[in-house]
Protein backbone atom coordinates (compact mmCIF):
# COMPACT_ATOMS: atom_id res chain seq x y z
CA UNK A 1 0.00 0.00 0.00
CA UNK A 2 1.62 3.23 -1.10
CA UNK A 3 -1.12 5.66 -0.04
CA UNK A 4 -0.11 7.97 2.76
CA UNK A 5 -2.14 7.37 5.88
CA UNK A 6 -2.02 9.01 9.29
CA UNK A 7 0.08 6.68 11.48
CA UNK A 8 -1.60 7.72 14.72
CA UNK A 9 -5.03 7.08 13.29
CA UNK A 10 -3.86 3.70 11.96
CA UNK A 11 -2.81 2.89 15.51
CA UNK A 12 -6.21 3.96 16.87
CA UNK A 13 -7.95 1.65 14.40
CA UNK A 14 -5.66 -1.23 15.37
CA UNK A 15 -6.29 -0.62 19.08
CA UNK A 16 -10.04 -0.50 18.54
CA UNK A 17 -10.05 -4.01 17.06
CA UNK A 18 -11.46 -5.95 20.01
CA UNK A 19 -12.30 -9.67 20.16
CA UNK A 20 -16.06 -10.08 20.44
CA UNK A 21 -17.92 -12.88 22.20
CA UNK A 22 -18.83 -15.46 19.65
CA UNK A 23 -21.45 -17.79 21.15
CA UNK A 24 -24.70 -15.88 20.64
CA UNK A 25 -23.72 -14.57 17.23
CA UNK A 26 -22.60 -17.98 15.97
CA UNK A 27 -25.77 -19.61 17.30
CA UNK A 28 -27.91 -17.04 15.48
CA UNK A 29 -26.01 -17.53 12.22
CA UNK A 30 -26.35 -21.31 12.44
CA UNK A 31 -30.08 -21.03 13.18
CA UNK A 32 -30.48 -18.84 10.10
CA UNK A 33 -28.54 -21.29 7.93
CA UNK A 34 -30.89 -24.03 9.09
CA UNK A 35 -33.95 -21.91 8.23
CA UNK A 36 -32.38 -21.16 4.84
CA UNK A 37 -31.72 -24.86 4.25
CA UNK A 38 -35.29 -25.83 5.17
CA UNK A 39 -36.65 -23.13 2.85
CA UNK A 40 -34.46 -24.44 0.02
CA UNK A 41 -35.65 -28.00 0.62
CA UNK A 42 -39.29 -26.88 0.58
CA UNK A 43 -38.73 -24.96 -2.68
CA UNK A 44 -37.08 -27.99 -4.29
CA UNK A 45 -39.99 -30.19 -3.27
CA UNK A 46 -42.44 -27.65 -4.65
CA UNK A 47 -40.59 -27.34 -7.97
CA UNK A 48 -40.41 -31.12 -8.18
CA UNK A 49 -44.14 -31.45 -7.63
CA UNK A 50 -44.95 -28.77 -10.21
CA UNK A 51 -42.64 -30.48 -12.73
CA UNK A 52 -44.26 -33.83 -12.04
CA UNK A 53 -47.75 -32.36 -12.49
CA UNK A 54 -46.69 -30.73 -15.77
CA UNK A 55 -45.21 -34.00 -16.99
CA UNK A 56 -48.40 -35.88 -16.13
CA UNK A 57 -50.56 -33.28 -17.83
CA UNK A 58 -48.51 -32.63 -20.94
CA UNK A 59 -46.26 -35.66 -21.45
CA UNK A 60 -48.61 -37.29 -24.01
CA UNK A 61 -49.07 -34.22 -26.24
CA UNK A 62 -45.34 -33.34 -25.95
CA UNK A 63 -44.27 -36.82 -27.09
CA UNK A 64 -46.71 -36.59 -30.01
CA UNK A 65 -45.40 -33.16 -30.97
CA UNK A 66 -41.80 -34.39 -30.74
CA UNK A 67 -42.56 -37.39 -32.91
CA UNK A 68 -44.30 -35.18 -35.50
CA UNK A 69 -41.30 -32.85 -35.63
CA UNK A 70 -38.85 -35.76 -35.88
CA UNK A 71 -40.79 -37.34 -38.75
CA UNK A 72 -41.24 -33.95 -40.44
CA UNK A 73 -37.56 -33.13 -40.15
CA UNK A 74 -36.30 -36.39 -41.64
CA UNK A 75 -38.87 -36.79 -44.43
CA UNK A 76 -37.20 -36.41 -47.89
CA UNK A 77 -37.68 -33.16 -49.78
CA UNK A 78 -37.30 -34.80 -53.20
CA UNK A 79 -38.37 -38.39 -53.77
CA UNK A 80 -36.13 -40.54 -55.94
CA UNK A 81 -37.29 -43.70 -57.62
CA UNK A 82 -33.79 -45.14 -57.63
CA UNK A 83 -33.21 -46.60 -54.11
CA UNK A 84 -29.41 -46.11 -54.37
CA UNK A 85 -29.82 -42.42 -55.19
CA UNK A 86 -32.38 -42.05 -52.36
CA UNK A 87 -29.95 -43.61 -49.85
CA UNK A 88 -27.02 -41.55 -51.11
CA UNK A 89 -28.85 -38.23 -50.88
CA UNK A 90 -30.66 -39.09 -47.62
CA UNK A 91 -28.30 -37.11 -45.29
CA UNK A 92 -28.98 -33.83 -47.12
CA UNK A 93 -32.38 -34.50 -48.66
CA UNK A 94 -34.52 -33.48 -45.65
CA UNK A 95 -35.81 -30.40 -43.78
CA UNK A 96 -33.38 -30.93 -40.87
CA UNK A 97 -30.34 -30.57 -43.12
CA UNK A 98 -31.82 -27.39 -44.66
CA UNK A 99 -32.36 -25.96 -41.15
CA UNK A 100 -28.79 -26.90 -40.12
CA UNK A 101 -27.39 -25.37 -43.33
CA UNK A 102 -29.38 -22.19 -42.69
CA UNK A 103 -28.07 -21.98 -39.11
CA UNK A 104 -24.44 -22.47 -40.22
CA UNK A 105 -24.90 -19.92 -43.03
CA UNK A 106 -26.53 -17.45 -40.65
CA UNK A 107 -23.71 -17.83 -38.15
CA UNK A 108 -21.11 -17.34 -40.92
CA UNK A 109 -22.85 -14.17 -42.16
CA UNK A 110 -23.22 -12.88 -38.60
CA UNK A 111 -19.49 -13.41 -37.95
CA UNK A 112 -18.54 -11.65 -41.21
CA UNK A 113 -20.88 -8.76 -40.48
CA UNK A 114 -19.61 -8.27 -36.94
CA UNK A 115 -15.90 -8.28 -37.93
Amino acid sequence: MTDELDRDLLLEFAKAEQPLKSKEFTTNVMRETQILGNRKKRSLWLYGLVLLALCILFAGPLVKLGTMFAIGFISPLVSFENPWLATLTMPVNNIASIVVAMLIGGRFIWKKASQ
Binding site: E17, L20, S22, V29, M30
Partner: peptide
Amino acid sequence: DPRAFEELVHRRQSIIRN
Protein backbone atom coordinates in the same frame (compact mmCIF):
# COMPACT_ATOMS: atom_id res chain seq x y z
CA ASP B 1 -20.44 -29.54 6.73
CA PRO B 2 -22.47 -27.33 9.13
CA ARG B 3 -20.18 -27.97 12.11
CA ALA B 4 -17.14 -26.91 10.13
CA PHE B 5 -19.01 -23.80 9.05
CA GLU B 6 -19.96 -23.09 12.65
CA GLU B 7 -16.29 -23.25 13.61
CA LEU B 8 -15.45 -20.95 10.70
CA VAL B 9 -18.05 -18.42 11.88
CA HIS B 10 -16.63 -18.69 15.39
CA ARG B 11 -13.12 -17.94 14.11
CA ARG B 12 -14.02 -15.06 11.80
CA GLN B 13 -16.98 -13.39 13.50
CA SER B 14 -14.90 -10.84 15.40
CA ILE B 15 -13.21 -9.51 12.25
CA ILE B 16 -16.46 -9.09 10.33
CA ARG B 17 -18.47 -7.70 13.26
CA ASN B 18 -15.74 -5.17 14.07
